[in-house]
Design a protein around this nucleic acid. Structure first.
Lengths: 346, 346
DNA sequence: GTACGCTACGCAACCGTTTGCGTGCAACGA
DNA sequence: TCGTTGCACGCAAACGGTTGCGTAGCGTAC
């Protein structure tokens, strides 16, 4: 509680008997201020421990030098590593990161957007909740001139800025591997229809089967709401059909954890009776006894740091009041298969 | 890009031919403004889509209505759940959360503190890095009147605000359970000496052994730097001594994952040849084949939300320029043992 | 001697809101 | 009729810094 008020530009001015404008300019090495004056000002500033009051600048410049990040759930390694990507990319620009976890709740997502809008963040990065299917809350941000970049979980719209991950590349590698191991009946345990990722995975699945001339059988395509119970139900369903698949593509590693438990509870052996390929690349597999043959890495860090770069481009654009519309920034990163499995036991 | 400028209080005033002060008061239902005027102002405000410019208020009030959170690593469930606790507690106060991951780097921690100071956050919540053993960077915040509350990983100092977790309660439960299962030689795989938690665990270990009249044997106390290799080394060391322990307390679940792998690689059976008790309560255990007998829950959410409450108390205190020194806010939460294990196989 | 240009600095407005204090006006009591 | 009171509102300063423009003083060229 020692110093209640920080020194201001005014006090420096008073001390030196110059005007505040001179001090302001001297501190920023403005050429129209003489060298002697500049030095004297800077010395006194240092002596007093002067620091600019950013709030004043924010106020005047109508910027807060902070960006909002809306993410479903930081307890998922994918997102926490995405956040690290954002932090690293933001640091260079001297910005702050305001965080909001939507916790997969659409309502919460809306509230967070509202709050960030109130706080006048300079831009927002978003990965959507599983529930989100309308995007008005983001569109209203245009009025406030707050740019938005989506990453990974992006809206099914065209006129947006985004960075996403192309799963085809990784999936093709994975199916090629499965085929090379002799699998011909490869199932799909997909996510909820709401998610863009679900449709995407389905399309990719079709594409990859076709690429390998494998028979398409709708019986071995199931979907889950991603709840624990439903994951198990989906897996059980696959095992119960007359001619079960010998391998399955699974929506993500979390679903897979449940699938593995289900398979094992039936006394079946992972990677022998049933092989898996999953998405997400959880760091825990190296500790697990039962692992997928492979997981498809979606590069959270790279996605989010590129999205952050996009956002800063848009922020610069928004700053220039050239009437010109900002360009759409869109990019798709290739996924990659990461091998884990030890096929056929051991 | 449609509306470049948001409507201000001035425009409302102009529209109604009243002064800005009247508008300002009317918007906040000030009693000295007539009912009619108040209504007219509020109507026009709604019509224009007026919203207060918080930057102006922040500037005037010298507050940013945001708090900083410095956390080692959000990829640890403990910390991501702590962050959720903070978000929930903050929401009620209409504050924002500015996040900074120190990634266990002391230098990074200092940089983050510096940045948050520049941004004039109203307060800071911290959980220290493993490296942090000097605290000047936090003490300098006093000059700026920015209160700090530590949680979980707290400095070894007396004059600080903190919330921490008392491990004695949980540990006592765990050792009682081990003893009831017949264990008498219980080892300790501890963390690096730098961490306060390490010393704490050691003291608790002593205390609990004594409480059960167990013999203290320094040979079965080892420590690890928390690196994967060192975790395995530590575990191997325990197994290699003449009379190995039949159970061990392990610093945390991450270390335990490595210990389990080490034990199994020797063909030994978890919870039969070697039983474990650990800290942290990772959500993954339910998917694992080999689990500790019990894990000691440290209540990240509760710790962090209480720390947040503390912080808001201090912020209020800092706002009142009563010369009075703020009180020290300190609290310790009891840990609890969570049982997982199925002793003696299955 | 006048006109001009350059250097080095000051003046004042501005960003949007809050708030202490002042004041005109009407009602009221004496 | 005059003084008092209270209501409803306006004035202006303040928060800290930036910036367009104005200008004093000086040197220089004609």
């Amino acid at each position: 509680m020692s110093e209640y008020r920080l020194p201001t530009i005014k006090e420096i001015a008073k001390r030196l008997n110059v005007s505040v404008s001179t001090v302001s300019r001297a501190l920023r090495d403005h050429p129209s201020i003489g060298l002697v004056t500049t030095m004297r000002v800077q010395n006194v500033a240092k002596e007093l421990g002067y620091e600019v009051n950013r709030s004043a600048i924010h106020f005047k410049e109508r910027k807060t030098y902070s960006i909002g990040v809306i993410i479903p759930n930081l307890s998922e390694p994918f997102f926490s590593s995405a956040l690290t990507g954002i932090e690293d990319a933001v640091e260079a620009n001297n910005y702050n990161v305001i965080i909001g976890q939507s916790l997969e709740s659409f309502e919460r997502e809306k509230r967070i957007v509202e709050n960030m809008k109130d706080h006048r963040v300079d831009g927002i990065l978003v990965s959507l909740t599983k529930e989100t299917s309308s995007y008005e809350h983001f569109e209203s941000l245009k009025k406030y001139n707050i740019p938005v970049v989506f990453f990974d979980r992006i809206p099914s719209k065209k006129d947006i800025n985004y960075v996403a991950c192309n799963l085809v590349s990784g999936m093709l590698q994975a199916i090629t591997k499965l085929v090379s191991l002799g699998h011909t009946r490869i199932g799909l345990i997909n996510g909820p229809a709401k998610l863009a990722a679900t449709l995407q995975r389905l399309e990719i699945y079709y594409k990859c089967l076709k690429a390998h001339n494998l028979q398409l059988d709708h019986e071995i395509i199931v979907s889950t709401s991603l709840s624990k119970a439903d994951n198990r139900r989906a897996m059980s369903h696959l095992l119960d059909i007359a001619e079960p698949p010998t391998a399955a593509i699974v929506f993500n590693d979390y679903v897979l954890l449940d699938c593995i438990a289900t398979v094992k509870s039936r006394g079946l052996v992972i990677n022998k009776d049933m092989s898996f390929v999953s998405f997400a690349n959880l760091p825990i597999w190296e500790y697990m006894d039962s692992v997928p043959l492979a997981s498809i890495e979606q590069f959270a860090y790279q996605q989010s740091s590129m999205a952050t770069d996009f956002l800063f481009q848009l922020i610069k654009y928004a700053g220039n009041p050239t009437g010109a519309e900002a360009p759409l920034l869109q990019h798709i990163i290739d996924s990659e298969m990461i091998e884990y499995g030890r096929p056929e036991g051991q």
